[in-house]
């Protein structure tokens, strides 16, 4: 059985949809079964990070697929991929040389998406692994900057699709994942200094409370030597 382009796209939507559910209020009930494996899921922060990782995974895989289609369309003798007669026709967008690469760098958008989702995933995975680290605030800020910057790129590509007169379902999926990821970073930014944040990592839960360290160098204390007294 051969899956057509839209059916293949559904495979990318599975982690994205699960991630969105996990981040939503429904995620609390959904995560019940996962808590034995990931105790950190008991907190909204843990569910948000877990959901964001899934969403970024979906965004990454759909970007990989987009780059694959881009490269396939550049092969000698290559046929049309995911072409359609309707408005949804990724072949007309990914195969359009005027719009299918990033200006200046000339990199295919699929590769740009792969790199962007890798960076976003790295930011959020590290937060998930050590949510009390000193750099967590920085990671959230970087995520927000990348997230808002990505909106400009999405706007540019949406304009390109408007010019071509077609919509690329693969690109739209990646854009959706990016926007959901941005919402995740906004949420993390709003709860980081509140009690909602919790202390344990996604895998650990809050069993062992820790206090967030302050920035900067902490001078070592010298133990008192009893012999001096």
């Amino acid at each position: 059985m051969e899956l057509d382009a839209n059916q293949q796209l559904m495979l990318h939507w599975i982690p994205i949809a699960l991630g969105v559910l996990l981040m939503s209020p429904m995620g609390k009930g959904m995560s019940q079964s996962l808590r034995s494996m990931f105790p950190g899921m008991e907190h909204q922060r843990g569910r948000t990070i877990g959901g964001m990782i899934l969403v970024f995974l979906g965004g990454f895989t759909v970007s990989v697929h987009t780059l694959w289609i881009h490269n396939k369309s550049k092969e000698m003798g290559a046929g049309n991929f995911c072409s359609g007669d309707g408005i949804w026709d990724c072949s007309s967008v990914i195969g359009n040389d005027a719009w299918n690469t990033m200006p200046v760098t000339n990199l295919p958008w699929g590769l740009v998406g792969m790199m962007a989702f890798c960076i976003l995933a790295w930011l959020v995975i590290s937060i998930g692994k050590d949510p009390t680290a000193t750099w967590v605030n920085d990671h959230i800020k970087y995520g927000l900057v990348l997230g808002y910057g990505g909106l400009l790129i999405i706007a540019y590509l949406a304009y390109g699709e408007y010019q071509i007169g077609k919509l690329c379902q693969y690109c739209t999926t990646a854009h959706f994942a990016h926007v959901v990821g941005l919402l995740g970073f906004i949420h993390l930014n709003s709860v980081i200094d509140t009690s909602e944040w919790g202390t344990g990592s996604v895998g650990e839960g809050d069993a062992e409370p820790r206090i967030r360290r302050k920035r900067g160098y902490v001078a070592p204390t010298i133990a008192k030597d009893d012999s001096e007294e």
């Binding site: 990989v64 694959w68 092969e75 792969m114 692994k129």
Partner: peptide, 28 residues
């Protein structure tokens, strides 16, 4: 360690995906 672990995970996935594309496509 947390950041290094995350880097290893992300880089592994990225390289695996890139190798898959390199092996299965031959763009001109």
């Amino acid at each position: 360690g947390a950041r290094t672990d995350a880097t290893m995970v992300v880089m592994s996935i990225f390289i695996a995906a890139f190798m898959l594309i390199a092996w299965t496509t031959d763009p001109v």
